[in-house]
Design a protein around this nucleic acid. Sequence first.
DNA 1: AATACATTTGCAAATTAGTGCAAATGAGTA
DNA 2: TACTCATTTGCACTAATTTGCAAATGTATT
Lengths: 120, 120
Amino acid sequence: MKTYLQKFKCLGDETRIRILRLLLISKEELCVCEIVDALEIPVYTISKHLKELKNAGLISEKREGKFIFYSLTKTDDAFFESILSAVSSIPGEFFKTNKEALKKRLKLRENGACVIGMKQ
Amino acid sequence: MKTYLQKFKCLGDETRIRILRLLLISKEELCVCEIVDALEIPVYTISKHLKELKNAGLISEKREGKFIFYSLTKTDDAFFESILSAVSSIPGEFFKTNKEALKKRLKLRENGACVIGMKQ
DNA sequence: AATACATTTGCAAATTAGTGCAAATGAGTA
DNA sequence: TACTCATTTGCACTAATTTGCAAATGTATT
């Protein structure tokens, strides 16, 4: 039961919803610095929320050199699918700015990988 | 955005999940005292959680004489459907006891309405 | 090894949420 | 009006969450 509650709790925070939505939009893994730039929220805040999302099993991480990439956990669990579907149902207008910032940021990738770091 | 977050936050509490699940199982409105008996949680706690669920727009209330009945809000909103579907996806084993207690309690209704009150 | 940079962590302060009890409300009934 | 009973509320208390900053970690580069 705890695992279900933990997932729901994760979804009760705006930053975490924005992170999930970003991962849903991009359909691929995102580097921490890309998420930071897209959401314009301090790194350490993002980092802590990413940790929670990971603990809840919603996202997975993968290190590639200096960068750490996060992606939605792959699973065919009905519960997980439903909550992702709920996140997708939130109107796009709320994420417009984030989506555009992400798009811009992703253009700076080389060979599909993040190469620049944080906008200082 | 706030309304979506509020709904998710509501789902992050075990008592509220149990209440929702009860309403999903019974497919009909339930009186506060029936919920209390089914969950074996103090009335005032249930009452406060019901208030939160109502504020979040997840459930609706209806008074009938001495009794107040709660039911899932009727809507065809995609977001709402998804979260209900998530709640339904939680394995039934977690709710077995509650479900049985509710069944017993509902047998005490007369003409489909709650007539007894609280087990003191 | 020394430096640079991406990311995480530990800790304190601020905020928010949950629980328990006693008292209040509101409807029905005598 | 007084009384009973279902339900809610106010308040005090405790527990959990969030945030900000500075320091730490880990990897790559020179």
